[in-house]
Design a protein around this nucleic acid. Structure first.
Lengths: 160, 160
DNA sequence: CCAGATAGATACAAGGTATAACGAAGGAGC
DNA sequence: GCTCCTTCGTTATACCTTGTATCTATCTGG
């Protein structure tokens, strides 16, 4: 890819190499992530969803009655950053917030039928996006990818 | 589904599963990237560098006299977003900007001796950060990781 | 009951990314 | 020479993401 970094149609500007950064795995991960985010944004935009709102919907659907703190921990985001997300989902009628009698500080989050319906549509769209992005890749390589990424995440969080 | 096993005596809220998101490779990439960014930030902060300024310094060092547009293309960032970066590096005396006589629109970017010195220090620190993060991982798996990430990036950029 | 911890919220700061549009300059074709 | 179009660096803007400090209400353990 370093050699194919082209400048659109420009005859004067020669291609520049980013080989000096390629040895860093973080650089490759970042570039791949940027591509995924841009593509995913196009996929979720028509449904007025973002990465974080889609992720939140998915986890709420899979873990009914969870609290915001639990959701934040599962998504590895700070609690304050979830407030606006929950507000938005609640305001759009996609989730419900029930007071929990045993702990009056927390809310129990659940999908509404509307939320479940949107989530189903979004999940299908995101799956199609991934299928295209991973088209032609070896399943064994993808398994290795997942495993190594998990190892990196663990290596980084354990030592903090 | 999720196995949110509530332990009665647990003082804190039970852990929630994110298994519903794990099938998406993008999710794993994002989580790994978050860990890397946080760790890299701690590494670069003492040198007053960010990911983007470090990357820019590296490419300028490896491709002397390149222009901002070439740098932006190589880093896959939009040209406007590079202006502040170049301004900062120039203002700190880490790079030079020479007018190019053959094209008076562009600047030729080069490292100053000070910039080269800082880059050497930073590169060493970043390499140490990566070594720790990739500690214990199989070299073949890492090679696969790089290859698959490059494939994903190509898959995503080709189809735009 | 009290001290400390936790849940949700508010405010704020800093980065990252994308787009539109501008003036200056270059290039191709006539 | 002289259009027409493109590219370069730039400004302004908007939105998203992430993190920290702080507040309150509430819970929990001693």
């Amino acid at each position: 890819m370093a050699l194919s970094t082209r400048i659109k149609g420009s005859p004067t500007a020669p291609r520049i190499s980013d080989e000096a950064l390629r040895p860093f795995v973080g650089y490759s991960i970042k570039r791949a992530m940027n591509v995924i985010r841009a593509d995913l944004r196009d996929v979720l935009d028509p449904m007025d969803l973002r990465m974080i709102t889609f992720s939140a919907l998915t986890l709420i659907g899979d873990n009914p009655a969870l609290s915001q703190a639990q959701l934040a921990a599962a998504l590895s985001v700070e609690r304050p950053n979830l407030v606006a997300v929950i507000d938005e989902l609640y305001g759009r009628g996609l989730i419900s917030r029930e007071k929990v009698p045993t702990d009056r500080r927390t809310y129990a989050l659940r999908l509404t039928t509307q939320g479940a319906r949107l989530l189903a549509r979004a999940t299908e769209a995101v799956q199609a996006h991934e299928d295209k992005l991973l088209e032609g890749l070896d399943p064994d390589d993808l398994a290795t990818l997942r495993r190594v990424l998990a190892d990196i995440e663990r290596n980084g969080t354990e030592r903090s």
